[in-house]
Amino acid sequence: MKKRRSRLDPTRPVAIWRSKDLLEGKPTDSLTIILRTRGCRWNRCTMCGFAAEGAPATAEDLMVQFRVAADRLSSRTRVVKIYTSGSFFDPMEVPAQVRERILDLLSGTGVEKVVLESRPEYIALDVVLDCVSRIDVEVAIGLETSNDLVRSHSVRKGFTFSDFKAASEIVHRGGGTVKTYLLLKPPFLSEGLAISDALRSSRAASPYTDLFSLNLCNIQRGTVVERMWQQGSYRPPWLWSAVEVLKNAPSVPIICDPVAAGTRRGPRNCGRCDRAIAEAIRKHALTQDPGVFEHLDCGCKSAWEKVVELEDLAFGAPLA
């Protein structure tokens, strides 16, 4: 671990990339910046391997990182997403003056909205008010599921649905918007239960959020889920399941970036149709048009249907 950490440069961001995001319903140029901070203070979630990217970055380091990233802004960039693999509002990760400087710098560009991530316990009204006074802010919260049993025992997230509701109210009161992450297929859940859990969660959380982002569980290194996967005890969700959720979620916009789709560690179907379906999912994220899923079919769909039907009665073993 020590060796690895020395290779993680606290003055370099983890990653920076340009993509498209929805802004007021329209696909818009966006820039995503992953800052390297000391990492998530909770750091106990079974599927999350981001802690491995952390380094003890000082306030100065973080500003250096941000300047490196800001070089990638273009004149058309309207949305900037600043993630830390933890909580942007945790002052131990991102000191208040760094937060303020970054938002001020961004408000001086053409950027219209900044998306930040935080666990509910760091979301306080004064912080939200302060941010919103500088630039439009969307706070993303990793609810994962509305089911407290699943969140505490399977994801091991350590907060409750009421904590999420309270945090969401604070963001709204402070003038920000809320994006809610849902996790498709937390460990222990059968394929069928994963679908119904995500749908139930989207219904339960829809009054408290402006946008859903469906995260398809993938196998990150050094995680509990990775160990289960290596033992043949966990399979990432089928892409059909993602389609099923995206098609049937309530009317709040729901987006999904099928990270690692079609790979061994990622959400996948049979291998033949993965690319087309991942493409449709990405298209859906920008259009919110369920029509993109209509023409999709593959021989593996009936296998997935059988898995959905039967996996509950395997009592903990993945069927395929």
């Binding site: 049993l149 460990p187 222990f188 289960m228 033992q231 005890s233 509950d312 009592f315 903990g316 073993a317």
Partner: peptide, 13 residues
């Protein structure tokens, strides 16, 4: 009702 968990996970409930 049963606590479905993989083989090598101790049932948490």
């Amino acid at each position: 009702p049963h606590v479905s968990v993989p083989l090598h996970v101790e049932p948490p409930v």
